[in-house]
Computed example of a mutant assay.
Amino acid sequence: MSLATHLEELQRKHGDLDREIDTAMSHPSVDDLEIASLKRRKLAIKDEIEKLKATTTTH
């Protein structure tokens, strides 16, 4: 998998998680721990995206 493809996949997953969080927050029955878990996963993906972008700009 090329770096560009990997970045695109991570960005897609980040967007998917964003939509999933929005959906979960609109339902009062969703557990706050589940939302927190989704947000942590989204942040981890964002961090990975930023790390990969930084790597590509230094090379």
Score class of each variant (00 low, 15 high):
Glu34Tyr: 12
Leu43Asn: 09
Arg12Leu: 15
Leu33Asp: 15
Asp32Ile: 01
Ile21Ser: 06
Ala24Leu: 12
Asp47Ala: 03
Ala24Pro: 06
Gln11Trp: 11
Ser29Lys: 00
Thr58Val: 15
His27Phe: 02
Ser26Met: 04
Glu8Gln: 02
Asp47Lys: 07
Lys51Pro: 07
Leu43Thr: 09
Arg40Asn: 09
Arg41Ser: 15
Leu38Cys: 03
Leu17Glu: 02
Gln11Pro: 01
Lys39Ala: 06
Ala36Met: 02
Met25Tyr: 07
Glu8Tyr: 05
Lys46Phe: 03
Thr5Gly: 09
Asp31Asn: 06
Leu33Asn: 15
Ile21Gln: 10
Asp16Ala: 13
Leu3Ala: 04
Lys39Glu: 11
Ser26Asn: 02
Ile21Phe: 12
Leu10Cys: 03
Ser37Val: 02
Thr5Leu: 01
Ile45Pro: 06
Thr57Gly: 01
Val30Cys: 11
Leu7Met: 09
Lys39Asn: 02
Thr56Arg: 10
Glu8Ile: 09
Leu3Asn: 05
Thr23Lys: 10
Thr58Glu: 15
Ala54Gly: 00
Arg19Asp: 08
Ile35Gly: 04
Gly15Thr: 12
Gln11Leu: 14
Lys51Gly: 04
Ala36Glu: 05
Lys53Asp: 09
Glu48Ser: 01
Ile45Cys: 01
Asp31Lys: 08
Lys51Gln: 07
His59Val: 15
Glu9Val: 00
Glu34Gln: 06
Thr55Val: 15
Lys53Met: 14
Met1Val: 07
Thr58Met: 15
Glu20Asn: 12
Glu8Met: 04
Lys42Trp: 11
Thr55His: 10
Glu48Leu: 07
Val30Gln: 13
Ala4Tyr: 05
Val30Leu: 11
Lys53Asn: 12
Leu17Cys: 05
Met1Trp: 12
Thr55Ile: 13
Asp22Arg: 13
Thr56Pro: 09
Asp31Ser: 12
His59Ser: 14
Glu9Lys: 00
Ile21Glu: 11
Ser37Leu: 10
Lys42Asn: 09
Thr58Asp: 15
His14Phe: 13
Ala36Tyr: 01
Lys39Cys: 01
Ile49Cys: 04
Thr5Met: 03
Lys46Asn: 04
Ala54Tyr: 01
Ile21Met: 13
Asp47His: 07
Lys51Phe: 09
Asp32Asn: 02
Thr23His: 10
Ile49Thr: 04
Ala24Arg: 12
Leu43Val: 05
Ala54Thr: 02
Lys42Ile: 10
Ala54Leu: 05
Glu34Ala: 03
Ala4Leu: 03
Asp32Arg: 03
Leu43Arg: 12
Leu52Trp: 13
Gln11Arg: 15
Leu3Gly: 03
Ile35Thr: 03
Glu48Pro: 04
Lys53Val: 15
Gly15His: 14
Asp31Gly: 05
Val30Phe: 14
Thr5Glu: 07
Ala44Met: 04
Lys53His: 08
Pro28Gln: 01
Leu3Glu: 08
Ser37Pro: 03
Ala4Arg: 00
